[in-house]
Design a protein around this nucleic acid. Structure first.
Length: 362
DNA sequence: AAAACGGGGGC
DNA sequence: GCCCCAGTTTT
């Protein structure tokens, strides 16, 4: 009886130390798929509550495949990368219409569908169908680049090197568990900073540890970061607020927001508001009191939103993006980016405070 | 090969 | 305040 193989070491560690997560309680392809999409570039901590809510709203493929896009986006509100939700809905429609509501267990078929890239396709096929596709995600890349001492950045070239090195170490069966075990090791032990090499089941064969390079592999990527100032206009008429829909493509596509825009260099906030509302609504406005400030961080820039109560002096034009007058409660049905959600929360608190003051001074 | 595409957690 | 995350798609 020889020593444990790489795969055996990883798997036995996973059985002992792997976390119990909602999407690991099942091999239902639909649930596995939804979890994989949600987990793209998104931490387990952030996904868990969304996943639980999602399965109540859209418990199976047929429900999702027939759901209105707006309700799907609403369920995704705050998770980010909203194209994922659109792709999920689009592919669910295809599964319902062309595959009897089933996910076909074929790499060539899935990879053509919206939202199925190399990672997701392999993950779904290995985890839900026990097919022999290894995955390369950020965790696996980090673990294996360290293990094989592949220095430098994550790149297609290094990915090929990884696959070549990994191939002889793959298990004969149970690829789904192996993939999840490798990812879990990256998430819990072989972390970006302060990796817990003493607790690692494969530290003996790790060439990165041997070379003392484990902390600097893969090479850290520097993130350009800029700051941006923007203004937001809140119009209220008879308890209803003006919101408008963003364009169907690009940043935050199809989500709703309060009108506003970027402050140009040398411009005051008030000037920016009047200019933006002239451009967006075709209306002249009066800028009222400052309501609140919200800082909203994106991957490569930070926006500071300055929110002002405003009043329309002229009627808005009819053309332009869809616009609606909506009560605070009515906003439950519209998907907003997180920055807008915080403004809505502010307006809700303000309304509550006003109601309380009324009840005291009455 | 690089950029676009969100947001929150961790330090 | 910076870095990262169960990637995909477009440029």
């Amino acid at each position: 009886m020889g020593k444990k193989t790489f795969a055996e070491s990883i798997l036995s560690w996973y059985r002992r130390h792997g976390r119990h997560l909602p999407w690991r309680e099942t091999k239902d392809p639909y649930r596995v798929w939804v979890s994989e999409i949600m987990l793209q570039q998104t931490t387990v901590k952030a996904v868990t509550p969304y996943y639980d809510r999602w399965m109540k709203l859209f418990p199976d493929m047929n429900t999702l495949g027939r759901a209105p896009l707006q309700s799907v986006l609403k369920a995704w509100e705050g998770l980010g990368y909203y194209q994922r939700a659109r792709n999920l809905r689009a592919s669910a429609g295809i599964f319902v219409e062309r595959f009897s509501g089933q996910i076909p267990p074929s790499y060539e078929t899935l990879i053509r569908l919206p939202g199925f890239g190399p990672y997701t396709t392999s993950a779904v096929l290995s985890i839900a169908f026990d097919l022999p596709y290894p995955v390369l995600d950020a965790n696996v890349r980090r673990v294996l680049m360290r293990y094989f001492l592949i220095e430098g950045n994550v790149s297609p070239n290094n990915d090929n090197l990884l696959r070549t090195n990994l191939d002889p170490l793959l298990p004969a069966k149970g690829m789904g568990d192996f993939n999840q075990a490798l990812m879990e090791l990256g998430a819990l032990v072989c972390t970006p900073g302060n990796p817990q090499c003493l607790l690692c089941p494969v530290r003996e064969g790790c060439r990165g540890l041997e070379a003392g390079e484990q902390e600097v592999i893969p090479a850290p990527k520097s993130m350009p970061s800029t700051r941006l100032e923007a203004v937001v206009a809140v119009f209220e008429q008879n308890g209803r607020f003006l919101i408008q829909q963003r364009p169907p493509t690009g940043l935050l596509a199809g989500l709703w927001e309060f009108p506003g825009g970027k402050i140009e260099p040398g411009e005051s906030r008030e000037q920016a508001l009047r200019r933006e509302m002239k451009e967006e609504l075709g209306a002249d406005i009066e800028v009222g009191p400052y309501l609140t400030g919200v800082t909203h961080a994106y991957t490569r820039f930070v926006v500071r939103l300055h929110v002002y109560e405003c009043r329309l002096k002229t009627e808005p034009k009819k053309s332009g993006p869809p616009r609606r007058w909506i009560t605070l409660r009515g906003m439950n049905r519209f998907p907003f980016p997180s920055g807008s959600v915080r403004i809505i929360r502010f307006l809700g608190n303000r309304a509550k405070n006003r109601a309380e003051e009324d009840s005291h001074t009455r």
